[in-house]
C-alpha cells in the first residue's frame, strides 16, 4: 500500500495500514513505530498539555498579524497604563501600546530564539560529544577540557560576556545562548557514546570495515539523538529564560521590540501600581517554559526506554 492509497482509503484504511503485521515499505515500518509512540504520549496528560500549549504558541506566532488586535508600535499616551478591558484584553503599557498584541508578536521572537539556539547547540554538542566519546584518547581529552571551560562559567554570565563583546541584539543573544547551551549536550552525548561504543552492534559494524566517520554518524549518533532531543526540549525553558534575562538586562532584543524579557523590564517601574504590565509577559515566559518542560518529560518517557 502506498501513502497515496491510504489517503483515498480514509481513516479506517490508515488504521489498518498502521496495524499491518508485515510492513511492506520502510516508510510504513517507520510510521508504525511512530504511531506506537504517539499512543504512548497520548496516555500522558501532562505531556499532552505541554504539547497543546506549544502548538498554540506556534500557531499564534505564525498567525500573529491575524491574532493581534492593535498595531504593536502605535503609541497613544492618552490611553497609557490602562487595566485589561474589552478594547485592550491585557491592558496597555506605559506608552499606551496594546499588551496583548505585543505579547502575540513577542511569541515570534521567543520561538525564534529558542529554535535557532536548539538548531545551533544540539548538532554542535552531538558531534563534539560523540566524536570525543568514540575516538577517545587525546581527542577526548582536548574536547572535554574545552567543554569543561565552557561549563565552568554560569550560562547567563557567559552569555552576558558574549553579548557585551558582540554588542546587544537578538542575533548576538542567540549566538551567546547557543555557546552556553552546547557543552551540557556534548557531555550527555559523550556519556551515551561511551556505553554505545562497547556494544556488540558497534563491534559488528567495525568488523564489516566501516570507517570511524561512518560509525559515528550512522550508528552512534542515531542512538544519542533521542536523549539529546529530550535534553534540548528540557533546556528550552532555560533558553527562553536566558533570552528573557538578556532582554530584561537590555542586552538582548532592543526596544521597541516586543520581546517578553524586554517587556518585563519596561514594566518593572510600574510593578507596584500596574502589576499586569510586568506580570503578563512574566506569565507568558512561565507558561511557555513549563510547557516545554512537561513536553520534554513526556518525550523522555517514550524516547528513552531506560527512564520509561
Amino acid at each position: 500500500m502506498t501513502p497515496q492509497s491510504i489517503d483515498q482509503a480514509g481513516g479506517r484504511g490508515l488504521k489498518a495500514w498502521l496495524a499491518a503485521p508485515v510492513p511492506s515499505s520502510p516508510f510504513q515500518a517507520r510510521m508504525q513505530q511512530l504511531s506506537l509512540k504517539w499512543w504512548r504520549l497520548r496516555a500522558n496528560p501532562a505531556a499532552m498539555f505541554g504539547l497543546a500549549v506549544i502548538v498554540l504558541i506556534v500557531l499564534v506566532a505564525l498567525f500573529a498579524p491575524l491574532v493581534a488586535t492593535h498595531d504593536i508600535y502605535a503609541q497613544d499616551l492618552t490611553k497609557r497604563l490602562q487595566r485589561p478591558s474589552v478594547a485592550h484584553w491585557f491592558g496597555t503599557d506605559e506608552l499606551g501600546r496594546d499588551i496583548f498584541s505585543r505579547l502575540v508578536f513577542g511569541a515570534r521572537i521567543t520561538l525564534y530564539i529558542a529554535l535557532l539556539t536548539a538548531v545551533i547547540a544540539a548538532p554542535l554538542g552531538l558531534i563534539v560529544g560523540t566524536t570525543s566519546g568514540y575516538l577517545g584518547g587525546w581527542v577526548d581529552t582536548v574536547l572535554m577540557r574545552i567543554v569543561d571551560i565552557f561549563l565552568a562559567f554560569p550560562s547567563l554570565v557567559l552569555a552576558l560576556a558574549f553579548v557585551a563583546a558582540l554588542g546587544p541584539g537578538i542575533d548576538h543573544a542567540i549566538i551567546a545562548i547557543a555557546l552556553a547551551a552546547w557543552p551540557p549536550i556534548a557531555r550527555l552525548a559523550r556519556a551515551e557514546t561511551l556505553s554505545i561504543r562497547k556494544s556488540d552492534y558497534i563491534a559488528a559494524v567495525r568488523l564489516q570495515g566501516a570507517s570511524p566517520l561512518r560509525i559515528i554518524l550512522g550508528h552512534v549518533v542515531p542512538m544519542c539523538i533521542p536523549s539529546v532531543v529530550v535534553r534540548i526540549t528540557l533546556s528550552m525553558a532555560s533558553i527562553i529564560l536566558t533570552a528573557a534575562g538578556l532582554g530584561f538586562l537590555g542586552l538582548g532584543a532592543q526596544p521597541p521590540s516586543p520581546e517578553w524579557g524586554a517587556m518585563l523590564a519596561s514594566g518593572r517601574e510600574f510593578i507596584l501600581t500596574n502589576g499586569w504590565i510586568a506580570g503578563i509577559p512574566g506569565l507568558a515566559i512561565l507558561v511557555t517554559s513549563l510547557a516545554f518542560n512537561l513536553f520534554g518529560d513526556g518525550l523522555r518517557d517514550i524516547l528513552d526506554p531506560r527512564h520509561g
Binding site: P26, S199, D200, Y201, A204, P222, M223
Partner: peptide, 8 residues
C-alpha cells in the same frame, strides 16, 4: 545486543 536497536 549485536543488532542496532534503531535499524531495520
Amino acid at each position: 545486543s549485536s543488532l542496532h536497536p534503531r535499524k531495520m
